[in-house]
Simulated scan of single mutants.
Amino acid sequence: MKTYRIDGSRIGSAADFYTEVGRAVNGDGGYFGSNLDALADCLRGGFGTPEEGGFRFVLAPYQGPRAAIGEPVWSTLLRVFVDNGVDLWLKN
C-alpha cells in the first residue's frame, strides 16, 4: 500500500496543511489545491494519488497541527478522509 507522509512540524495553519499534503503527494512544490474540495478530489484518486485507491497518509507529529488548525477545521479535515475511505494515521 502506498503511504504518503505529511510532515506535521511544517504545519502552523490550514493553508500549511494543504501545502504539506501537496508536498507529500507530488514532491517539493507539489500543489493540488488549498481547500477541502481539493483535498477530497485528491483523496478520491488522481492529482498525484493512485486512481485505483490503496493508499494512506501518515501525519507526524500531529498534535501541533491539530492545535494550529483549530478543532472545528481539524474535525472537518478528518471527516473528509473518512468520507473518502482514506486512512489518516496520526502519530506523535
Rank of each mutant, 00 (worst) to 15 (best):
E20A: 02
V82D: 13
R66F: 12
A15T: 05
E71W: 07
F57H: 02
V73I: 15
C42Q: 01
G54V: 02
L59R: 00
E51T: 14
Y18W: 14
R56M: 12
G22Q: 03
P72R: 13
Y62I: 02
E52S: 12
R44Q: 13
L77D: 00
R44M: 11
G54S: 05
G53F: 04
R44H: 13
G70L: 08
V25G: 03
L88D: 04
L43Q: 02
F47T: 08
G85S: 00
G46Y: 13
R23V: 11
S75Q: 11
L59G: 00
E51K: 12
T49K: 06
Y62W: 14
G22N: 01
T49H: 06
G12T: 08
D37N: 08
V25Y: 08
G53E: 00
G53H: 02
P50S: 06
D83N: 09
E71S: 12
I69V: 05
L88A: 05
A24N: 04
L43E: 03
D41E: 15
D83H: 03
F47L: 13
Y62T: 03
G33W: 01
A15M: 07
L88R: 06
G70M: 12
G29E: 01
L78M: 13
A38E: 14
F55I: 07
E20I: 04
L59Y: 06
N26R: 15
D37K: 00
P61R: 10
L78P: 05
F47M: 13
Y62V: 06
G29Y: 03
G22A: 07
G53P: 05
G70K: 14
W89G: 15
E71H: 09
G33V: 01
D37M: 09
G64W: 10
G27L: 03
V58W: 05
Q63C: 07
W74M: 11
F17D: 06
D41F: 07
